[in-house]
């Protein structure tokens, strides 16, 4: 008996080990696949563009230089765009988080009158939008065109994220907690601030990330609704820069060497643009990461 058991045990742990190795290998390959493009861009941004295009920077950067970054930082509009983007993202996310979480909390309470109707109303806006021209006319008549408000107000509530948040509240914040709060003499506000929010750090972190990403990458509303280039966010500045880079540099019988150099420099700038544009996102992930792991699984009601 004992013998068989031992054999079984060894067998089990053997298959566990195999599973671990296979699992680890697959995940490692997958991670590398995801990381490689980022690594490639990074290495391309500090390599000589000629080698990049000949495919010689497959593994390591070659002809290392920082020409792309130097050129890029020479544009005075970059820093201003960066500052604008930070402003839009921070203020936009504050507004969005406030509307999103409060709205989700209210809709997660079953005793809310007209809850079904309200839910339907919110979902409806996900299917039907005004369209570009009517939106433009609306913002114009609201006199928010060409101001910060046209960037952050129209997206003040993301219905999709609100629904995600509401579902989280409904499935993770148990009714007993609310009863406990009530017994202790707490109101809805106390419950929301003292109980719900601290228990929802994980979803809050994820939502901040979602909202911030959307704001950081937002380009169209700046394109259509901002006229003053001093208010452009980074993405718009970068887009303008790439457009001006690709304009025909060769159209007058010009010094051939100079043109070849110019084309080279512009390719370097293009890679640098991608890196500069994504730095804040890279920086944000590690901070949010710990909430992905923590939080969700930690229950508050035992048994």
């Amino acid at each position: 008996m004992a013998k068989t058991k031992t054999i079984n045990k060894i067998k089990d742990s053997g298959s566990d080990r195999v599973f671990g190795i296979v699992n680890g290998t697959i995940l490692t390959i997958f991670t590398l696949l995801v990381l490689y493009p980022i690594y490639f861009i990074l290495s391309a941004s500090i390599s000589d563009p000629t080698y990049v295009n000949l495919g010689e920077t497959f593994l390591f950067p070659k002809g290392i230089n920082f020409l792309g970054y130097e050129k890029l930082l020479e544009y005075p509009t970059i820093l201003r765009g960066f500052a604008n983007s930070v402003l839009y993202t921070v203020s936009g996310v504050c507004i969005q988080m406030f509307t999103c979480v409060t709205c989700a909390f209210a809709l997660s309470r079953k005793e809310l009158p007209g809850r079904r109707w309200l839910n339907g109303f919110f979902v409806l806006t996900m299917y039907i939008g005004g369209g570009l021209v009517p939106s433009y006319i609306l913002y114009r008549d609201l006199h928010i065109l060409n101001t910060i408000w046209v960037i952050i107000l129209p997206t003040a509530l993301s219905v999709y994220n609100m629904i995600v948040c509401r579902s989280f509240f409904m499935s993770n914040i148990s009714e007993e907690l609310f009863e406990a709060t009530k017994i202790d003499g707490g109101s809805y506000t106390t419950f929301f601030i003292k109980v719900v929010l601290p228990l929802s750090k994980a979803i809050l972190a994820v939502l901040v990330l979602y909202h911030a990403l959307a704001h950081w990458n937002n380009y169209t509303s700046a394109l259509y609704y901002l006229r003053d280039s001093r208010k452009y966010p980074l993405q718009m500045v970068l887009k303008g820069l790439t457009a001006s880079l690709s304009s025909d540099v060769q159209d007058m019988g010009m010094d051939a060497k100079a043109i070849a150099d110019k084309i080279k420099a512009e390719q370097a700038v293009r890679y640098a643009i991608i890196i500069i544009g994504s730095i804040p996102v890279f920086l944000m992930y590690p901070f949010v990461q710990k909430y992905f792991v923590k939080g969700v699984m930690v229950g508050s009601v035992k048994g």
Partner: peptide
Amino acid sequence: EQYNAKKGASVSKIGVHWSNANAM
């Protein structure tokens, strides 16, 4: 970009091409 890189190679690789400028 790949085409331009061929034109930009330090040891010439291309025999004949047509462009609007001799940017090699």
